[in-house]
């Protein structure tokens, strides 16, 4: 019975995606492209955060640290060796993943809240580190040249990364890794008892998650052409994906997507409508309202059966 609808859904999905890819060529004003590009970026960040955060239940607040690592890696290569960021991005992601692997050994000694604290301190530590290293600009603003890219390319790349992360999410969910993570969230010790390689899975997910954070981070500075430490090693960049995932629903596959797709444009449009500093107040109020209205995540209103 559901089979027919399934194909229909997939078809509609493909059409929508093709439409999105062709949007830049339809004469849509640049602003919407930029807005969408940022939305895709946050979709990617929220999705990959959710692997560790929602599936495994480990609140990783250090996402920005790996994001920033990726950003600086590619920016430096672009400035000094003229390596296009798009090419170095996967390697930036790799670097972030390796770092995550290493740091994970220490970080996963902690659970729950403490894990959150340790990861958030990672962001600060990296921030201070990078700000003090003169080789990385010593805290000054740097201007990585936009090599081999323009608005449209950026748009496609971010859209692509959003898609890839969605696909990876789906595969994780259906894999042993995915079930293992969910088991960990349920009760880690029991999971270990029944044979789930808890530590290995956590580490792997952390690395995978950070890979994409670094990848996306490498591309971010292309949007504005500037980079400075507090732009990327910024708690907000860590926190926003968390908020988006929670709002959208961490137990839903599309949860983070919905959360990001709603919050990002709203955060921009609020300031257009209000044109004063009050938009932050509204944003906070909106957050509270939405969360209390549907604590399980907004995705619940749309998807009845994709719960974990």
């Amino acid at each position: 019975m559901k089979g027919k609808y399934l194909i229909l859904i997939y078809l509609v999905g493909i059409v929508v995606i093709m439409l999105l890819f062709s949007l830049p060529f339809l004469g849509v004003p640049s602003f919407y492209l930029t807005l969408l590009t940022l939305t895709y970026m946050y979709i990617s960040l929220s999705l990959c955060w959710n692997w560790l955060g929602g599936f495994a239940g480990y609140l990783n607040l250090g996402h920005a640290a790996f994001f920033g690592v990726g950003a600086y890696f590619s920016a430096m290569l672009a400035i000094y060796y003229k390596v296009p960021q798009l090419l170095s991005a996967p390697f930036a992601g790799l670097l972030a993943a390796v770092l995550a692997l290493g740091l994970g050994f220490a970080a996963f000694r902690f659970r729950g809240v403490y894990f959150g604290i340790v990861t958030i301190s990672l962001v600060f530590i990296f921030l201070i580190f990078v700000t003090n290293l003169d080789a990385l600009g010593g805290g000054r603003t740097l201007f990585p040249p936009p090599l081999l890219s323009n608005n449209i390319v950026l748009y496609q790349v971010m859209l692509g990364s959003a898609l890839v992360t969605s696909i990876v999410t789906r595969f994780i969910l259906k894999s042993k890794l995915g079930w293992g993570l969910i088991a960990i969230r349920g009760d880690e010790d029991t999971a270990a008892c029944i044979g789930v390689p808890v530590f290995r899975y956590k580490l792997l997910t952390f690395a995978l998650s950070s890979f994409f954070a670094g990848l996306v981070g490498a591309i971010y500075p292309l949007l504005t052409g500037v980079i400075y430490p507090s732009m990327v090693f910024n708690v907000l960049i860590s926190v926003n994906p968390v908020l988006m995932s929670i709002l959208g629903g961490t137990t839903y596959l599309m949860g983070p997507v919905i959360g990001a797709a709603i919050l990002l444009p709203i955060s921009y449009y609020l300031s257009y409508i209000l044109m004063s500093e009050l938009h932050i107040v509204l944003y906070g109020a909106l957050l509270i309202a939405l969360v209390t209205a549907q604590p399980k995540g907004l995705a619940k209103w749309l998807f009845k059966e994709t719960r974990l």
């Binding site: 938009h279 932050i280 509204l282 906070g284 957050l287 509270i288």
Partner: peptide, 17 residues
């Protein structure tokens, strides 16, 4: 978990205010 969001929301409200 939602508490985090709500608290953050309050934080924003206060800061914006």
């Amino acid at each position: 978990l939602q508490m985090l969001l709500v608290a953050f929301g309050f934080l924003l409200i206060f800061e914006g205010g």
